[in-house]
Structures are given as structure tokens and as C-alpha cells.
């Protein structure tokens, strides 16, 4: 008892330490770090706008709508690149989303834990493969497979559709879309798997408890419970597919044409940029490439914003105030 009083007296005689000082320093430091993000973002945007000014002045709005891309004549239009970007990404998402979700469900609900661990590990490994390797594999292995098997099969059975007409060349928009699908698949699968593993067991038990099958439990309860995370995963994959460069450049054929057939060669914004910066000798050519980059920047921004609001809206709906 005596001792403790002494200790208190001791403490009281110490000079008080001003705790608020380091806190203020940290606050400013953190703010400065956060500012870096804004500066980089603004810097990129500014440079893109500045360098693309010439192209936009020259072609105006028709830069976005014209599909002629003719360096010799000095005519540039982004339509074919925008089209190729959206179509290849669209193909990728149409294939990757359902496939990823099915694989994730299999990993979490169906597979034996050992099998699940093995395949799960492979999925993570696949996500880490550099895109150039996808590109090389796509060109040397997958494109050949497309040419000899997949494309002939499609034109035989679905050849009535303009989408699947024309000679099977192996490379082209469809092949690029499929390669993109393979690339985003591991991302969406891995996140969806993690989301499904977070579903509380007791919630699943309740679903089984009212007599749901496994499929009904997954479809109506687990996926619904994790839908916010899954939508986030999908948009992450989407962003990756939109901007993917190397793999697409290898297999898309790099032609500035809009064709109804998915077999024909095309280009995406990213692949054109990668291909053509070396050749861009004229200032207007260079400026047009910057304008393309600005368009990609804009598309990405639009989809990011949509994703943001969508997820936020779901959050609000779940919280119950609408």
C-alpha cells in the first residue's frame, strides 16, 4: 500500500510528455503520402491531355467515331481500337465470370479438401504467370488449336451467325478474348473462392436445414451473401482485361478494322499503343496515340466509377436504408 503511493508520487513528479506532437507529425506524413497518389493521377491525366491535344484539334469528335487509321494519309480514328477493346474484354468476361464462379463453388463446396487445395494452388499460380507468357503460349499453342479445331467447329455449327464467319486464321479478336478470359479467370476464381469461404457455416446450415440442395444453397444463399465481394472481383478482372497489353498484342492480329466476324484480326487500344509508338514519326501520329491512351484512361475511369457506385449501392441495400 505504502509502496504504491510512493510510485504514484514518483510518476507525478515526472515532466508530462506531449503526446500530441508525434501524432501531428504522423498526420501530416500520412497526408503527404496520400497526396502522392493524387499527384501521380493528375500528372498522368495532364500529360495525356496535353499530348493528345493536337489529335483532338485536328479530328475533333470524329476521332472517337472514325474507324480509319491510316498513318500514311495522316488520318486517325479510334473506333476500331475502342471496338476491339470492348469486344475482346466482353468475350473474356462472358466466359470468365461463369467459369470462375463454378470453379470457386467446386473448390469450396464440392471438392475434397486435398483436391481443392491442389487446384486452388494452381489457380493462384496461374494468376502470377506474367502476361507475356500468356501471349507466347497464346500465339504458338492456343492460336494453332483455334485454327485447326475451335474455329472450324464454330463455323460448322454456328456459321449462320456473322460472328463466326470467315477463314479460320487462329489469331484474331476471338482468340484474344479467350486468352484474356484465361488471364482474368484465376483472379475472379481466387477472390470468389475466398468470398465463399467467408460465408458463415451456420447460414449454410440453415439453407440446408430448410431442405435446399447444395446448388440451391450456393445459388440463393452463399453467392448472395458474398455478392458484393464477387462483383468487386469481376470488376477487378474487367479492369485487367481492358488494359491488358502484351498477351493481346501477340494474338489479336493488329489490324485497324472493324469486322463483324470474331475470327478476323483486330486491335485494342493497349495493343495499338504497344505496337505503334516505335513507328510514330509524325507528330500527329504520336498525338493520336496519346489520344488513344486518353480514351482508355476514360473508359477505365467510367467502369471504375460504375463499379464503385454499384458496390456502394449494394452496401446501402444490405444495410436496409433505401
Amino acid at each position: 500500500m505504502k509502496e504504491s503511493t510512493a510510485a504514484i508520487a514518483n510518476v507525478a513528479t515526472c515532466a508530462p510528455r506531449d503526446q500530441s506532437r508525434p501524432d501531428a507529425v504522423f498526420k501530416w506524413l500520412a497526408a503527404a503520402c496520400a497526396l502522392v497518389v493524387i499527384v501521380i493521377m493528375a500528372g498522368i491525366f495532364f500529360e495525356l491531355v496535353r499530348n493528345s491535344g493536337m489529335a483532338f484539334r485536328e479530328f475533333g469528335f470524329s476521332f472517337l467515331t472514325s474507324d480509319s487509321w491510316n498513318p500514311i494519309a495522316g488520318e486517325f480514328g479510334a473506333a476500331s481500337s475502342i471496338y476491339g477493346t470492348l469486344v475482346s474484354t466482353g468475350i473474356a468476361m462472358i466466359i470468365a465470370i461463369p467459369l470462375s464462379i463454378i470453379i470457386a463453388v467446386y473448390l469450396v463446396e464440392v471438392a475434397h479438401p486435398k483436391v481443392s487445395g491442389l487446384i486452388g494452388g494452381a489457380v493462384e499460380l496461374l494468376a502470377a504467370v506474367p502476361s507475356i507468357i500468356y501471349g507466347m503460349w497464346g500465339l504458338f499453342v492456343f492460336a494453332a488449336l483455334m485454327q485447326t479445331h475451335v474455329q472450324p467447329f464454330l463455323s460448322r455449327h454456328l456459321g449462320a451467325l456473322p460472328l463466326f464467319q470467315g477463314p479460320p486464321m487462329g489469331i484474331g479478336v476471338l482468340t484474344a478474348g479467350l486468352i484474356l478470359a484465361f488471364m482474368v479467370l484465376p483472379f475472379i476464381t481466387a477472390i470468389t473462392r475466398d468470398v465463399l469461404m467467408m460465408v458463415p457455416p451456420v447460414l449454410k446450415e440453415s439453407a440446408y436445414g430448410v431442405g435446399s440442395t447444395m446448388w440451391e444453397t450456393v445459388r440463393f444463399v452463399s453467392l448472395k451473401y458474398g455478392r458484393r465481394g464477387i462483383v468487386g472481383a469481376v470488376f477487378l478482372g474487367f479492369g485487367r482485361a481492358l488494359g491488358e497489353t502484351m498477351a493481346v498484342t501477340f494474338v489479336i492480329g493488329n489490324s485497324h478494322r472493324i469486322s463483324a466476324s470474331l475470327f478476323s484480326a483486330g486491335n485494342t487500344i493497349a495493343s495499338s499503343l504497344a505496337n505503334e509508338f516505335n513507328e510514330a514519326s509524325e507528330p500527329i501520329y504520336l498525338s493520336s496515340l496519346f489520344a488513344l491512351a486518353l480514351v482508355l484512361f476514360g473508359i477505365t475511369l467510367v467502369f471504375q466509377t460504375i463499379a464503385h457506385y454499384w458496390v456502394a449501392r449494394m452496401q446501402r441495400l444490405e444495410a436496409g436504408d433505401r
Partner: peptide
């Protein structure tokens, strides 16, 4: 499935499904 229809279960914590009040009941 028939067994679990016949034998209902209530858990320690409430486990509403992530859907509307109506759909929670309509689901089963």
C-alpha cells in the same frame, strides 16, 4: 430434402438469408 422439410431447425444465432423478409419465408 424431405427429411429436412419435415424437421425444421433453429440455431443459436438468428440466420436470416441475405434477402428480403418476404423472400426469406417464400424461399423454403
Amino acid at each position: 430434402l424431405k427429411l429436412r422439410k419435415k424437421v425444421g431447425m433453429i440455431f443459436q444465432r438468428p440466420t436470416p438469408f441475405p434477402m428480403s423478409i418476404y423472400d426469406n419465408i417464400a424461399y423454403g
